[in-house]
Protein backbone atom coordinates (compact mmCIF):
# COMPACT_ATOMS: atom_id res chain seq x y z
CA UNK A 1 0.00 0.00 0.00
CA UNK A 2 1.26 3.45 -0.87
CA UNK A 3 1.60 5.64 2.18
CA UNK A 4 0.31 9.21 1.87
CA UNK A 5 2.94 11.93 1.65
CA UNK A 6 2.06 13.35 5.07
CA UNK A 7 2.27 9.89 6.61
CA UNK A 8 5.65 9.26 4.99
CA UNK A 9 7.17 12.45 6.35
CA UNK A 10 5.55 11.94 9.75
CA UNK A 11 7.08 8.47 9.84
CA UNK A 12 10.49 9.86 8.87
CA UNK A 13 10.37 12.46 11.68
CA UNK A 14 8.95 9.96 14.17
CA UNK A 15 11.86 7.59 13.54
CA UNK A 16 14.41 10.43 13.77
CA UNK A 17 13.03 11.70 17.07
CA UNK A 18 12.82 8.16 18.47
CA UNK A 19 16.48 7.57 17.65
CA UNK A 20 17.45 10.93 19.15
CA UNK A 21 15.56 10.17 22.37
CA UNK A 22 17.39 6.84 22.62
CA UNK A 23 20.74 8.60 22.19
CA UNK A 24 19.89 11.13 24.91
CA UNK A 25 18.79 8.33 27.28
CA UNK A 26 21.90 6.25 26.64
CA UNK A 27 24.55 9.01 26.61
CA UNK A 28 22.98 11.98 28.37
CA UNK A 29 23.56 14.24 25.37
CA UNK A 30 21.84 14.70 21.97
CA UNK A 31 25.09 14.18 20.10
CA UNK A 32 25.43 11.59 17.33
CA UNK A 33 27.65 11.03 14.30
CA UNK A 34 26.58 12.41 10.92
CA UNK A 35 25.42 10.17 8.04
CA UNK A 36 28.97 9.35 6.99
CA UNK A 37 30.10 8.85 10.57
CA UNK A 38 32.79 11.52 10.17
CA UNK A 39 31.64 14.31 12.46
CA UNK A 40 29.72 14.57 15.70
CA UNK A 41 26.51 16.55 15.35
CA UNK A 42 24.41 18.21 18.05
CA UNK A 43 20.70 17.65 17.43
CA UNK A 44 18.41 20.21 19.01
CA UNK A 45 16.07 18.47 21.46
CA UNK A 46 13.28 20.93 20.67
CA UNK A 47 11.52 20.70 17.35
CA UNK A 48 10.70 23.81 15.37
CA UNK A 49 7.97 23.53 12.74
CA UNK A 50 7.94 26.22 10.13
CA UNK A 51 5.54 26.86 7.29
CA UNK A 52 5.74 30.25 5.60
CA UNK A 53 2.68 32.34 4.85
CA UNK A 54 2.87 35.43 2.68
CA UNK A 55 0.32 37.96 1.47
CA UNK A 56 -0.65 37.59 -2.18
CA UNK A 57 -3.48 40.11 -1.95
CA UNK A 58 -2.03 42.49 -4.53
CA UNK A 59 -1.20 39.76 -7.05
CA UNK A 60 -4.23 37.51 -6.56
CA UNK A 61 -5.23 38.03 -10.21
CA UNK A 62 -2.33 35.72 -11.04
CA UNK A 63 -3.79 32.89 -8.94
CA UNK A 64 -7.28 33.46 -10.29
CA UNK A 65 -5.67 33.12 -13.74
CA UNK A 66 -4.20 29.72 -12.85
CA UNK A 67 -7.72 28.53 -11.95
CA UNK A 68 -8.85 29.60 -15.44
CA UNK A 69 -5.88 27.84 -17.03
CA UNK A 70 -4.17 31.15 -17.87
CA UNK A 71 -0.75 32.52 -16.96
CA UNK A 72 -0.57 36.25 -16.26
CA UNK A 73 2.35 38.64 -15.93
CA UNK A 74 2.25 42.28 -14.86
CA UNK A 75 3.52 45.06 -17.09
CA UNK A 76 4.42 48.56 -15.88
CA UNK A 77 2.23 51.16 -17.59
CA UNK A 78 5.05 53.71 -17.34
CA UNK A 79 8.16 51.88 -18.56
CA UNK A 80 6.62 48.82 -20.23
CA UNK A 81 8.73 46.30 -18.27
CA UNK A 82 7.23 42.85 -17.78
CA UNK A 83 7.28 41.17 -14.37
CA UNK A 84 7.10 37.41 -14.01
CA UNK A 85 6.35 36.07 -11.48
CA UNK A 86 4.07 39.12 -11.37
CA UNK A 87 4.94 42.04 -9.08
CA UNK A 88 2.58 44.80 -7.98
CA UNK A 89 5.40 47.38 -7.87
CA UNK A 90 7.92 48.53 -10.47
CA UNK A 91 11.24 49.17 -8.73
CA UNK A 92 12.50 51.17 -11.75
CA UNK A 93 9.59 53.64 -11.76
CA UNK A 94 8.96 53.35 -8.00
CA UNK A 95 5.30 53.09 -8.98
CA UNK A 96 2.45 50.60 -8.63
CA UNK A 97 0.85 51.28 -11.98
CA UNK A 98 0.52 47.84 -13.55
CA UNK A 99 -1.46 46.12 -16.27
CA UNK A 100 -2.28 42.42 -16.07
CA UNK A 101 -1.35 40.68 -19.33
CA UNK A 102 -1.83 37.06 -20.29
CA UNK A 103 1.49 35.63 -21.46
CA UNK A 104 1.76 34.12 -24.92
CA UNK A 105 3.36 31.02 -23.44
CA UNK A 106 5.72 30.69 -26.40
CA UNK A 107 9.35 30.42 -25.42
CA UNK A 108 12.81 29.20 -26.31
CA UNK A 109 14.90 27.25 -23.82
CA UNK A 110 17.89 29.23 -22.51
CA UNK A 111 19.26 26.80 -19.95
CA UNK A 112 18.24 23.88 -17.73
CA UNK A 113 19.39 21.43 -15.10
CA UNK A 114 18.19 17.95 -14.13
CA UNK A 115 17.51 17.57 -10.41
CA UNK A 116 18.31 14.08 -9.19
CA UNK A 117 19.31 14.90 -5.61
CA UNK A 118 16.20 16.35 -3.98
CA UNK A 119 15.30 17.91 -0.66
CA UNK A 120 13.16 15.66 1.59
CA UNK A 121 9.81 17.21 0.67
CA UNK A 122 10.57 16.83 -3.07
CA UNK A 123 11.90 13.30 -2.72
CA UNK A 124 8.67 11.67 -3.96
CA UNK A 125 8.94 13.28 -7.42
CA UNK A 126 10.76 11.54 -10.27
CA UNK A 127 13.87 13.43 -11.44
CA UNK A 128 12.70 16.78 -12.77
CA UNK A 129 14.10 19.41 -15.10
CA UNK A 130 14.30 23.03 -13.95
CA UNK A 131 14.53 25.31 -16.97
CA UNK A 132 14.68 28.97 -17.92
CA UNK A 133 13.11 30.05 -21.20
CA UNK A 134 13.04 33.33 -23.07
CA UNK A 135 9.42 34.20 -23.78
CA UNK A 136 8.25 35.80 -27.03
CA UNK A 137 7.48 39.01 -25.11
CA UNK A 138 11.15 39.30 -24.10
CA UNK A 139 11.19 38.26 -20.45
CA UNK A 140 12.47 35.02 -18.92
CA UNK A 141 10.53 32.42 -16.97
CA UNK A 142 11.89 29.75 -14.64
CA UNK A 143 9.77 26.61 -14.41
CA UNK A 144 9.91 22.84 -14.49
CA UNK A 145 10.07 21.35 -17.97
CA UNK A 146 7.84 18.32 -18.35
CA UNK A 147 9.63 15.67 -20.45
CA UNK A 148 9.70 11.90 -20.41
CA UNK A 149 13.43 11.73 -21.14
CA UNK A 150 15.69 14.53 -19.82
CA UNK A 151 18.38 13.42 -22.31
CA UNK A 152 16.25 14.85 -25.12
CA UNK A 153 16.25 18.38 -23.69
CA UNK A 154 18.23 20.85 -25.82
CA UNK A 155 19.07 24.52 -25.31
CA UNK A 156 17.21 26.48 -27.98
CA UNK A 157 14.26 24.06 -28.18
CA UNK A 158 10.76 25.56 -28.40
CA UNK A 159 8.67 25.28 -25.26
CA UNK A 160 5.19 26.29 -24.19
CA UNK A 161 4.26 27.53 -20.72
CA UNK A 162 1.05 25.98 -19.48
CA UNK A 163 -1.00 25.60 -16.30
CA UNK A 164 -0.80 22.13 -14.77
CA UNK A 165 -1.75 20.35 -11.59
CA UNK A 166 1.28 19.26 -9.61
CA UNK A 167 0.52 15.73 -8.50
CA UNK A 168 0.16 14.04 -6.10
CA UNK A 169 -0.51 17.24 -4.08
CA UNK A 170 -2.93 18.51 -6.71
CA UNK A 171 -2.14 22.23 -6.61
CA UNK A 172 -2.16 24.46 -9.68
CA UNK A 173 1.16 25.68 -11.04
CA UNK A 174 2.82 26.30 -14.39
CA UNK A 175 5.28 24.16 -16.33
CA UNK A 176 7.00 24.15 -19.68
CA UNK A 177 6.22 21.44 -22.20
CA UNK A 178 8.24 20.88 -25.38
CA UNK A 179 6.57 22.06 -28.60
CA UNK A 180 6.55 19.23 -31.12
CA UNK A 181 8.21 20.29 -34.38
Amino acid sequence: MVMSLEARYEEFWRQSIKQLNEVVKATGLPIAPDEKGQYSLWYDVREMRLRFSISVERIKRFFEGLREGKVYATRCRRCGRYYFPPQADCPYCKASDMDWVEVSGEGELLTYTVINTKPLTYSHYPDYVVAIARMREGFNVLAWLRVDDPKRVRVGMRVRLQVVRREPEGYLTYEFVPVEQ
Binding site: F84, L110, I132, F139, L142
Partner: peptide, 9 residues
Amino acid sequence: ANLSKRPDF
Protein backbone atom coordinates in the same frame (compact mmCIF):
# COMPACT_ATOMS: atom_id res chain seq x y z
CA ALA B 1 18.33 36.18 -6.47
CA ASN B 2 16.02 35.18 -9.30
CA LEU B 3 18.02 33.45 -12.02
CA SER B 4 15.31 34.17 -14.59
CA LYS B 5 15.91 37.91 -14.11
CA ARG B 6 19.62 37.71 -14.95
CA PRO B 7 20.65 38.88 -18.41
CA ASP B 8 23.02 35.90 -18.81
CA PHE B 9 24.56 33.01 -16.88
